[in-house]
């Protein structure tokens, strides 16, 4: 069943993109409603997973532009993400969690297209070729967006950590 197979993937993609749990739930429901009405347009020769992710990506980016999400704040990182288990040392675990929090909040500063590309590549672990199919863009553009997104996040991380060390 479609819900069992894809709900987790779509919900996580929506949550990573929007940063707010309730909105991600509403968006997931809207995406599935859109999916049921668009199923007649699905070309059976195409990869269903990529087709669904394209639909989800289009919906999320359109909503982002319509409602100006970038001005909204994201959920507190620990509100829904539980701390990872089993670190080599407690200090290392705290540092790692701190980095994740900075990155989580930094995602809000990426443009919608760069944000989506980074989510698909680095959080969801998709191949560049798959992302190019989902985003309907050339491979070079995807790689360039991923590089730009990583660089932007790394600079945010560097700035926050350096400022913290100065204090």
């Amino acid at each position: 069943m479609i819900v069992n197979t894809y709900s987790k993937r779509i919900f996580n993609m929506a949550y990573q993109f929007t940063g707010t749990y309730e909105e991600a739930e509403d968006m997931t429901q809207d995406i599935f409603m859109k999916l049921y009405t668009s199923l007649t347009k699905y070309d059976f020769e195409k990869n269903f997973s990529a087709w669904l992710l394209t639909l989800a990506k289009n919906y999320l980016i359109d909503e982002y532009r319509r409602t100006k999400w970038e001005k909204k704040s994201r959920d507190n990182f620990n509100e829904h993400y539980l701390p990872s288990e089993a670190f080599e040392s407690p200090e290392y675990g705290i540092l790692k969690e701190e980095t994740k929090k900075i990155i989580w909040e930094g995602i809000n500063q990426l443009s919608s297209e760069v944000r989506m590309t980074v989510i698909l590549r680095d959080i969801q672990g998709k191949k560049y070729e798959e992302i190019a199919e989902i985003m309907s863009l050339p491979l070079g553009t995807i790689k360039s967006r991923v590089n730009r997104g990583r660089l932007q996040l790394a600079k945010i991380l560097k700035e926050k950590k350096e400022r913290k060390n100065e204090m």
Partner: peptide, 14 residues
């Protein structure tokens, strides 16, 4: 560090 951190983001249950 950013790449490792992003790859380590957990997937939430629905």
């Amino acid at each position: 560090e950013t790449n490792k951190s992003l790859a380590d983001f957990p997937q939430l249950e629905v």
